[in-house]
Amino acid sequence: VTTYKLVINGKTLKGETTTKAVDAETAEKAFKQYANDNGVDGVWTYDDATKTFTVTE
């Protein structure tokens, strides 16, 4: 299990959150659900070296 980070650069929501997941794909699903629940819809990137997803509106 690895800790992944999400950086949110939204129009109305900015911040960070983390999740523990077995792989990046599982973390991405959780983060996309989180973003959707919070009304954030943007461009996604992922940096494997830092295990960090970024979504920018």
Score class of each variant (00 low, 15 high):
2 T>E: 08
8 I>V: 07
4 Y>F: 10
14 K>I: 11
41 D>T: 11
36 N>Y: 12
23 D>Q: 04
57 E>G: 03
5 K>H: 11
49 A>W: 08
13 L>W: 11
51 K>M: 14
32 K>C: 04
19 T>V: 10
7 V>W: 15
31 F>Y: 02
31 F>K: 00
34 Y>G: 02
24 A>K: 15
27 A>M: 01
43 V>R: 11
18 T>F: 15
12 T>G: 11
13 L>M: 11
55 V>Y: 02
4 Y>W: 09
27 A>R: 00
55 V>T: 03
24 A>G: 06
24 A>V: 14
29 K>E: 09
51 K>T: 04
28 E>L: 13
44 W>F: 05
6 L>K: 00
16 E>A: 04
24 A>N: 07
16 E>P: 03
1 V>D: 10
52 T>Y: 03
9 N>F: 09
10 G>D: 04
14 K>H: 14
14 K>A: 10
44 W>Y: 02
56 T>H: 06
22 V>C: 04
25 E>P: 08
42 G>E: 01
18 T>A: 09
42 G>F: 02
29 K>R: 14
1 V>K: 10
43 V>K: 07
1 V>C: 05
15 G>V: 15
1 V>W: 15
21 A>M: 03
15 G>N: 14
9 N>M: 13
6 L>E: 00
27 A>L: 00
37 D>P: 02
30 A>C: 06
34 Y>A: 03
4 Y>Q: 00
32 K>I: 12
4 Y>T: 00
17 T>H: 15
54 T>N: 05
1 V>M: 14
12 T>Y: 15
43 V>D: 08
46 Y>F: 09
6 L>P: 00
41 D>A: 12
40 V>I: 13
27 A>H: 00
16 E>F: 06
19 T>R: 07
24 A>E: 10
3 T>P: 05
18 T>V: 10
29 K>C: 03
49 A>S: 10
36 N>S: 12
28 E>C: 05
23 D>P: 01
23 D>H: 06
10 G>E: 03
47 D>C: 05
52 T>F: 03
16 E>H: 07
29 K>S: 11
14 K>D: 13
23 D>R: 09
54 T>R: 05
39 G>S: 10
15 G>D: 15
14 K>S: 08
39 G>Q: 05
34 Y>H: 08
16 E>T: 08
11 K>A: 15
26 T>K: 08
18 T>W: 15
44 W>E: 00
52 T>I: 13
53 F>G: 00
34 Y>T: 04
53 F>L: 02
35 A>W: 03
53 F>M: 02
2 T>S: 10
17 T>F: 15
7 V>K: 14
26 T>R: 06
32 K>T: 08
45 T>F: 07
43 V>P: 04
45 T>S: 15
43 V>L: 09
21 A>Y: 05
18 T>M: 15
3 T>H: 05
47 D>G: 02
29 K>Y: 15
52 T>G: 02
19 T>I: 09
40 V>D: 01
13 L>N: 15
46 Y>V: 01
23 D>T: 07
23 D>K: 06
37 D>V: 12
18 T>R: 14
34 Y>K: 03
47 D>M: 05
46 Y>H: 02
48 D>V: 09
14 K>Y: 07
56 T>C: 04
17 T>D: 04
25 E>I: 12
22 V>H: 11
13 L>A: 04
18 T>C: 06
27 A>G: 02
13 L>E: 14
55 V>H: 01
12 T>H: 14
37 D>A: 07
28 E>R: 12
28 E>H: 13
21 A>H: 04
34 Y>L: 07
1 V>P: 06
15 G>W: 15
6 L>G: 01
37 D>W: 05
54 T>Q: 06
52 T>H: 03
28 E>K: 12
15 G>P: 07
33 Q>W: 08
23 D>E: 06
42 G>R: 02
28 E>G: 09
42 G>M: 02
56 T>Y: 06
15 G>H: 15
31 F>D: 00
10 G>I: 15
48 D>G: 13
2 T>I: 12
57 E>Q: 05
40 V>A: 04
57 E>L: 04
27 A>K: 00
2 T>G: 12
50 T>H: 07
2 T>A: 10
48 D>P: 09
28 E>P: 00
10 G>W: 14
56 T>L: 07
20 K>A: 13
18 T>G: 04
24 A>F: 13
1 V>Q: 11
7 V>E: 04
49 A>N: 09
48 D>K: 09
5 K>Y: 06
45 T>N: 09
37 D>H: 10
22 V>I: 11
13 L>G: 10
1 V>H: 12
29 K>I: 11
20 K>W: 15
6 L>V: 03
19 T>K: 07
26 T>C: 05
12 T>F: 15
29 K>F: 11
13 L>P: 03
40 V>T: 04
32 K>F: 10
4 Y>K: 00
11 K>E: 14
8 I>M: 14
19 T>H: 07
41 D>E: 13
18 T>Q: 12
36 N>L: 13
25 E>V: 13
4 Y>A: 00
31 F>R: 00
5 K>F: 06
1 V>A: 09
37 D>Y: 08
26 T>M: 07
43 V>F: 13
8 I>W: 08
7 V>C: 04
15 G>Q: 11
11 K>R: 13
48 D>N: 15
10 G>H: 15
39 G>I: 04
56 T>D: 10
28 E>Y: 14
2 T>D: 13
34 Y>C: 03
30 A>M: 15
28 E>A: 09
38 N>Q: 08
43 V>I: 06
29 K>P: 02
44 W>N: 00
10 G>A: 14
9 N>Q: 08
22 V>R: 08
42 G>K: 01
38 N>C: 05
42 G>P: 01
26 T>A: 14
9 N>D: 14
21 A>E: 05
50 T>L: 12
14 K>C: 06
38 N>Y: 15
38 N>K: 14
52 T>R: 04
42 G>D: 02
37 D>F: 07
48 D>L: 08
48 D>R: 10
55 V>W: 02
42 G>A: 02
37 D>Q: 11
31 F>V: 02
22 V>E: 08
37 D>G: 06
23 D>W: 04
12 T>C: 08
8 I>L: 09
38 N>R: 15
35 A>N: 04
27 A>Q: 01
31 F>H: 01
11 K>N: 11
34 Y>I: 14
52 T>Q: 09
28 E>M: 11
36 N>V: 13
50 T>I: 10
41 D>R: 06
41 D>C: 05
41 D>L: 07
44 W>L: 03
21 A>D: 03
32 K>D: 02
36 N>W: 09
40 V>Q: 03
35 A>G: 03
20 K>D: 13
37 D>K: 14
24 A>P: 11
52 T>S: 04
42 G>C: 02
56 T>M: 08
41 D>S: 10
46 Y>A: 01
23 D>M: 06
57 E>F: 05
32 K>G: 03
51 K>S: 07
51 K>Y: 13
5 K>D: 02
22 V>S: 13
8 I>E: 01
17 T>P: 03
56 T>S: 11
54 T>S: 05
11 K>Q: 09
25 E>N: 12
5 K>E: 03
16 E>I: 04
38 N>W: 10
3 T>I: 09
42 G>I: 01
57 E>T: 03
27 A>N: 00
22 V>N: 09
25 E>Q: 12
40 V>F: 11
45 T>I: 08
40 V>G: 02
52 T>L: 05
2 T>L: 08
44 W>P: 00
53 F>K: 00
10 G>N: 10
57 E>H: 04
43 V>T: 13
10 G>L: 15
48 D>T: 11
13 L>F: 14
46 Y>E: 00
10 G>F: 14
51 K>W: 07
35 A>T: 12
3 T>L: 14
15 G>Y: 15
20 K>L: 13
53 F>H: 02
47 D>I: 08
12 T>K: 15
2 T>R: 09
56 T>K: 07
25 E>S: 14
50 T>K: 11
46 Y>W: 04
17 T>N: 07
31 F>T: 00
57 E>D: 09
14 K>T: 08
16 E>G: 03
27 A>P: 01
2 T>N: 09
11 K>L: 13
11 K>V: 15
24 A>H: 11
5 K>C: 04
33 Q>R: 11
54 T>I: 07
2 T>F: 14
29 K>T: 09
